[in-house]
Amino acid sequence: MLEILDDKMAIEGLNVLHMAGDIGYGVLETGISVDQLTIDIGQSNNVGFNYFHNKFGMPYDFLLKSSISSGHSLFVAVKGSDQLLGFARFEKISDETEKTYKGKTNIVNYSVHLLRSIEVHPAHRHVGIGRLLFAISVNQLETNVITLPDNQGAARFFKDKLNFKCLNPGNNGLSSRYKDYLILPYPRARAMLKTMAVNYPRMVLPELIGSYESLKFRDNMGKSISKSDISDFQVLFQNSKELLDNKLMNELDSFIKRLDA
């Protein structure tokens, strides 16, 4: 996971897991964190979060704080220092089960988390923020994820974009009450972040790709590249390796070696 974090993002209790440009993705760990967020609420003259406000009349700060106090995992996408762009709430409904045989312990069934909701600010939808937020969340949780979409459009999104499948409760040790739910099984869930990085590197790793293209352009134009710029690029490369496919990794590695020659 990329570990170059934005110094301006100083929300207390926010554990930043990934930075993509000026957007930080992480998990909120305390209710105090919510008070430090700027949450745009959708109104007649303002575009903002509106689903829970319109459907349940629920204030968003109350929703987020209640999720944390209930022990749910609350992942967020935050732009700049404090602007909330999206959030995802997960509730753990079963623990992983292990089996020991001849002194070796293996996981028989991974834990299961219920995705209670995921919402992205209306002005920032359709650019991958929701998918990246979800991918980072399940990568961190290392779990099976189930959900129950409340409309056909949402169901298509989970199936087509996030690869959820119909759930067979008996195969996951769950109650029959979950028979209509969808599931994203582990380890497919954990692989989602790397898959996104491979397919959409500019979205997931904008600093790395931007730096590479800038240095490559300067190199092709015969312009000098400082040791400091090379060093910064090497740091980005090293911190991003686990998300790169072999083709891009070899390409960037060869470029660095040529600059160092």
Rank of each mutant, 00 (worst) to 15 (best):
residue 172 N to G: 01
residue 226 S to M: 03
residue 148 L to D: 12
residue 199 N to D: 13
residue 180 D to P: 02
residue 192 M to L: 15
residue 188 R to F: 02
residue 219 D to T: 00
residue 155 A to V: 06
residue 201 P to H: 04
residue 225 I to P: 04
residue 203 M to R: 12
residue 147 T to A: 14
residue 227 K to I: 02
residue 174 L to C: 13
residue 174 L to E: 11
residue 208 L to P: 06
residue 197 A to I: 05
residue 192 M to D: 09
residue 196 M to I: 06
residue 155 A to T: 13
residue 229 D to Q: 15
residue 172 N to H: 14
residue 182 L to G: 09
residue 178 Y to L: 08
residue 165 K to H: 14
residue 229 D to P: 03
residue 146 I to K: 01
residue 173 G to D: 08
residue 216 K to S: 14
residue 191 A to Q: 10
residue 216 K to G: 01
residue 233 F to S: 11
residue 193 L to F: 06
residue 217 F to M: 10
residue 172 N to D: 08
residue 185 P to H: 07
residue 233 F to P: 11
residue 198 V to Y: 04
residue 161 K to W: 01
residue 161 K to D: 15
residue 218 R to C: 01
residue 203 M to S: 12
residue 162 L to Q: 08
residue 217 F to P: 00
residue 207 E to P: 01
residue 156 R to C: 12
residue 194 K to V: 04
residue 191 A to M: 05
residue 187 P to H: 12
residue 199 N to C: 03
residue 200 Y to M: 08
residue 162 L to E: 09
residue 216 K to M: 09
residue 179 K to E: 15
residue 173 G to S: 06
residue 173 G to K: 02
residue 166 C to R: 14
residue 154 A to R: 08
residue 183 I to S: 07
residue 185 P to M: 04
residue 205 L to R: 03
residue 155 A to E: 15
residue 178 Y to A: 11
residue 182 L to M: 10
residue 217 F to C: 06
residue 220 N to M: 00
residue 203 M to Y: 04
residue 214 S to Q: 01
residue 212 Y to D: 06
residue 209 I to V: 15
residue 159 K to Y: 06
residue 216 K to D: 09
residue 172 N to Q: 12
residue 153 G to M: 05
residue 152 Q to S: 14
residue 214 S to F: 00
residue 159 K to P: 09
residue 221 M to V: 03
residue 211 S to R: 03
residue 166 C to H: 14
residue 233 F to C: 13
residue 214 S to I: 00
residue 154 A to L: 15
residue 207 E to N: 08
residue 190 R to T: 09
residue 215 L to F: 02
residue 157 F to E: 07
residue 201 P to D: 03
residue 175 S to F: 01
residue 210 G to I: 06
residue 231 S to A: 10
